[in-house]
Design a protein around this nucleic acid. Structure first.
Length: 163
DNA sequence: AACATAGACAACCGCCAGTCA
DNA sequence: GTGACTGGCGGTTGTCTATGT
């Protein structure tokens, strides 16, 4: 069928955001709210894709973000939530005020994986690493079945979204 | 001092699900 | 009921910095 691209790629900037772009985006959102991401870049005078603006705002520019190191309590909460939810980063982020899904995902993939491995725990199954051979296929997290969702495992869409 | 490697994190890509005409 | 559009998500990549040799 061929989806239409989310934006005019030929006329959009890519890569790292400049300070000026950040300022434009923040100023626009403070004045008009988040609104429609597709039209926002044009309205704000940014040569960026709407998705890119959304990501930049959510992951970096939002005023309620708590930046800096994760606390021990946050570490433990992430491990606990990951063992329950798997790679549902947005859900985990919803339980950590001021943290974003991207931040948690990066933190997991760099720090936490190694931390768990050093404890002898497999980061994807939360089982002892020497206990892995058995049914490792069937216990993979991140692949939540429709049945599981219907049965009450919270879905990420439009739920528990941090503002 | 120069280079190589690893670590950290920002940003992009493709897919999926919800909404609406 | 159907298809297009949009927002949102998770996986992956790219780039910059720190550390080791």
């Amino acid at each position: 069928m061929g989806r239409s691209p989310c934006c005019e790629k030929a006329h959009t900037n890519k890569g790292a955001w400049t300070k000026e772009e950040d300022e434009r985006l923040v100023a626009y959102i403070q004045a008009h709210g988040e609104g429609c991401w597709r039209t926002l870049p044009k309205a704000a005078g940014l040569l960026r894709c709407g998705k890119s603006c959304r990501l930049r705002w959510i992951n970096y520019l939002r005023p309620d973000l708590k930046r800096g190191n994760f606390t021990v309590e946050e570490d433990e909460l992430i491990i606990e939530q990951h063992s329950l939810l798997g790679n549902k980063w947005s859900l985990i982020a919803g339980r950590l005020p001021g943290r974003t899904d991207n931040e948690i995902k990066n933190y997991w993939n760099t720090h936490m994986r190694r931390k768990l491995l050093s404890r002898g725990i497999d980061p994807s199954t939360h089982r002892p690493t020497n206990d892995l051979a058995v049914d490792s296929m069937s216990t993979s997290f991140g692949a939540v079945s429709k049945e599981e969702k219907i049965a009450g495992v919270p879905t990420c869409k439009h739920q528990e979204k941090p503002i």
